[in-house]
Design a protein around this nucleic acid. Structure first.
Lengths: 199, 199
DNA sequence: CTGGATAGTGACAGTGACTCTCTCATGCGA
DNA sequence: TCGCATGAGAGAGTCACTGTCACTATCCAG
């Protein structure tokens, strides 16, 4: 974890780019804004935008989850109650102090594009797919699951979360997301049958 | 369902394009082949390739499921046992007479690219997402599921199928896919608890 | 404090996927 | 057989994205 000057500069520049990009997207629409314009607005070179975000969609879907170590993921995910811990994560993230109060919807400002821009939605799906492949190994073995079953369940979790998020968005974002996740993912709880007398 | 000459010509051309494209991809790799080359090999214009397949990835992920009517989907999907009917679909599709016996792996020739080419994988995920949004309404209401829950379960099904398919591919494609789907999606059966004395 | 090693940035050129528009041919209905 | 409309082809243009290379700002050893 380098706290060097270089590192700090890069992170600062990345935040600036993301903010300027969202400003431009909100103003003129995702498709109408070019990477060059974003780079100019953030006073960096287009090369840097690509170096740091990979794609135009990456400007929106880039998430701190990617850079999270496997250890950290293992820590926050309870393999005996993945649905519950997923809700916990959402609750914690939702109540986190939004670093910029001027944002119309806090950290969820980006979510809108998940469901309005098809290419962003696709990029989000790819991101969720990657997330699924990361948490699947943690689930394997527990509850006597095979590798395939673990991946199936992992996908059910991450894409189920996505489905809940979409409903939250479609409903206008009034109630907390955690509520949608909790209710929406209720059926998945049947995957982990409570230990009864017959097993 | 127009069986006119135009329609037949278009379908024939589409099949030719897909075959030539796969030939070229197999020969030189997905990235190294341009749409222009594919169009030239299939003796159509690049415009037509885009008109019919939308994207380069569409050449591989294009599926007859898209053009299936909502009624047809409703017919083959048993809302009381979605996992079972999914397996049935796979079984039927797997044992279908492969129209071209020269294909090294029958209709599954394309599957390789799902898991070798990241962009194709992403396109496949988008396709599954669309499939999920189509079967979710059929599930809603049954078993007392809300709309969100139906979508969650629909995603669990389609992306669970994808996970099983990946494992099948990673294992070399020896056993039938249906086996992988059956075993892999076993945990999802817990979503529909058998009607017991207590409900 | 200073100099060299180095990682990271910007500038630039190139590729090709994809879009748009216009024109023209061809299968279709009268 | 004769308009007509649907749809294919042609061509130009945009821009996301890649690779390379020179340079500069940081880091670190002495």
């Amino acid at each position: 974890m380098g706290t060097g000057l270089r590192e700090r500069k890069r992170l600062s520049a990345m935040r600036t780019i993301q903010e300027r990009a969202l400003d431009l997207f909100d103003e003129r629409g995702f498709d109408a804004v070019t990477i060059e314009e974003i780079a100019a607005a953030a006073e960096v070179s287009p090369s840097s935008v690509y170096r740091w975000f990979g794609t135009k969609e990456g400007l929106i879907v880039a998430d701190e989850f990617d850079s999270m170590s496997q250890e950290a993921v293992r820590e926050i995910l309870d393999v005996n109650d993945p649905v519950g811990s997923l809700i916990q994560i959402v609750v914690r993230y939702e109540s986190a102090p939004q670093q910029d109060a001027r944002d119309s919807k806090g950290p969820w400002r980006r979510v809108r594009y998940f469901f309005q821009e098809p290419s962003v939605r696709t990029a989000a799906l790819a991101e969720l797919d990657r997330a699924g492949s990361r948490i699947a190994p943690l689930l394997a073995g527990s509850n006597g699951m095979t590798g395939t079953q673990a991946r199936v369940v992992a996908n059910a979790l991450v894409f189920g979360y996505f489905a809940a998020l979409e409903q939250w968005y479609l409903d206008g974002g009034a109630d907390p997301i955690a509520t949608y996740v909790q209710k929406g993912l209720q059926p998945l709880r049947g995957i982990w049958p409570p230990p009864g007398p017959t097993t």
